[in-house]
């Protein structure tokens, strides 16, 4: 399938696709090994009455005959003290029942408080109580789905509260207690380094890299002196270089995903997205 023949020795290369754009899909399956779908982005309805759009589900079923599929959610809100989003899990149930999934992943953060949307995603304090909460939920997810579950590091926008762990220590303990894997978003690491002074080398040196099964690469923007995780641009050379370093150091990584928001697709254009996937494969081979 197209450029995929050149992928020996390279992790699988994936890209975001949210459906409804057959011309883009036709080109992506030629250059990508897998597609990433956010169940909440392909849903319709309101509140608890969310369903995956029929026509999109059919598109994914057809795509699954050519490439692998990973589900990567946004709306689970695994870190909400008041409870996670059951409606989101029903979407995953629906998707997993219709399309074979390589795995299911989510962000290590929260998007609702007492059922009210924040309008954004916030990171958790790295405390024992937050760890207990997330671990209990990860175990329930692993019991619910037969595929592996991964959690992703998110970019932190607010100041860091006092905690019981450093960045790597929290993730290490989470994986140790639950056996879950990690999605390492290297662009988010760059955001944290820029915005809060995260020492990426030290972080990678302390992280149990055997738990990392997927990397995310994206391009964002800088506003008001802050680097923002908006997935709206080409990946910067520094981000691709960091991904290459992480791949070299990570024994169990299976895939590297170029993430782009559906809203950015018309702005970037199909050519740029296909080019980013191809460029990523070349850089990681």
């Amino acid at each position: 399938m197209g450029d995929k023949a050149a992928s020996v020795g390279c992790p699988a290369i994936g890209v975001t696709y949210e459906g409804g754009d057959p011309a883009l899909l036709e080109r992506l399956v030629e250059v990508a090994d897998y597609l990433e779908v956010a169940p909440d982005f392909i849903a319709t309805g309101t509140g608890d009455d969310l369903r995956i759009r029929r026509e999109i589900l059919g598109e994914w079923q057809a795509a699954a005959e050519e490439v692998e599929i990973v589900a990567h959610g946004v709306g689970l809100s695994i870190g909400s003290a008041s409870g996670w989003n059951e409606a989101y899990l029903r979407l995953v149930d629906e998707l997993a029942g219709a399309v074979p999934l390589r795995w299911h992943s989510e962000h290590l953060g929260y998007t609702t408080v007492d059922g009210e949307p924040l309008g954004t995603m916030l990171s958790l304090p790295r405390t024992e109580e937050a760890l207990d909460l997330v671990c209990e939920r990860v175990i329930r997810l692993q019991e619910r789905y037969p595929v592996r579950f991964l959690l992703e590091n998110i970019a932190r926008m607010l100041p860091d509260p006092d905690g019981d762990y450093d960045e790597a220590g929290f993730l290490n303990e989470l994986c140790k207690r639950t056996g879950c894997g990690l999605v390492l978003d290297v662009y988010n690491l760059e955001c944290d380094a820029h915005n809060h002074g995260l020492d990426i080398d030290r972080f990678l040196g302390a992280l149990e890299l055997g738990a990392v099964h997927e990397l995310h690469v994206a391009g964002g923007t800088e506003v008001g002196g802050m680097k923002l995780d908006v997935h709206s641009r080409r990946a910067q050379p520094s981000t691709v270089a960091l991904a290459a370093r992480a791949v070299a150091a990570t024994p169990a990584v299976w895939g590297v995903t170029y993430e782009v928001l559906p809203e950015a697709v018309p702005v970037l254009g199909h050519d740029v997205i296909v080019d980013e996937v191809t460029r990523l494969r070349a850089a990681l081979s």
Partner: peptide, 28 residues
């Protein structure tokens, strides 16, 4: 413990939405 996490999340929601945050001695 979960109540402490909940209280922090409720306070951050209030700050994000520009609502009054319950008074307290929380330097964070």
């Amino acid at each position: 413990q979960a109540a402490r996490l909940a209280a922090q999340q409720q306070a951050l929601l209030a700050l994000l939405k520009g609502r009054p945050v319950p008074a307290g001695d929380d330097s964070y």
